[in-house]
Amino acid sequence: MRIRSVVALVAVLSLAACSGDTGPLSTDVLPDQPAVTQTAPPAETAPAPNCNPRASLRPAGSLPAPGDMPAGSYMETIRKRGRLVLGTSQDTLLFSSRNPFTGKIEGFDVDMGRQIAEAIFGDADKIQIKVIAYDKRVSSAADGSVDIVADTMTANCDRWQDVNFSSIYYEAGQKVLVSSSSKAKRIEDLGGQKVCSAAGSTSYENIGKVKSSKPVIGVAKPAFGDCLVAFQRNEVQGISTDDTILAGMASQDPYAKVIGPRFTEEPYAMAMSQAHPEFARFVNAVLARNRADGTWKKTYDKWLGDFGAAPEPPKAQYQ
């Protein structure tokens, strides 16, 4: 009985995430100020047509050999340029964060990008990392200022209207992080309290949709690292976003804990411009190969191994 109601809740919420998400080119909807406090989610924009956000473009044939990209393809453009431009963040520990010792940006997302560079050049280091704000992820991919975005980005129907997503490379779900002394068991217990998330993220949208006696007050910061700063300075009582990002934060703060069940589904995919569908097919082919040959599992173990053995990689779905 209880399990069924939780499943039903998740289904309802993920459906809501699909239709009531940040509108096309989300930058216009959420003000990109350093901190925005609001109690209700932004006004619903025109809902996107229903779709399967997990279904991407099917790979065409076998992968070309590194350094030998089909003429006229976007991969050839990248090869000629000499580097792949990856858009990501620098403060999402485990996925893409700056290693304080080396100054290099590294993590699961960065390795996803490096595997694409490897497939194009035969050299994973031919990659330029460009840090983009959370609320610029859709627009950066759409306008071609980066080749590909790998930045804990949820594939959803709204965003599909502006960008092409790859197949899903990671399944996350939203949870909430609170102080270790907190009595809250789930996000619904945080009614009337301030909960932080990154501006322009689906997580921020979801905070406004939490049903509780008093509405949970969403606080938007430019990046998740800023949320942790706000949490440690007692400006907010909690941080809510995908469980894996929260795990990275909790590992930096022994006085924080992650609570509750996953209350949304957040399938991560890489975003690319719709102008080059052949590039999305190519990326999907690389992902398919890496799922099959154990590269995905190795990458998981490297960054997320502390949370248990690697699960099966998400199954690719195609349109």
């Binding site: 700056r98 304080p100 942790l228 700063v229």
Partner: peptide, 15 residues
């Protein structure tokens, strides 16, 4: 934070 290798140090710096 930086001394302990925690990336949140850079967020404190940008704050």
């Amino acid at each position: 934070n930086n001394r302990q290798g925690k990336p949140v140090g850079s967020s404190y710096l940008s704050e």
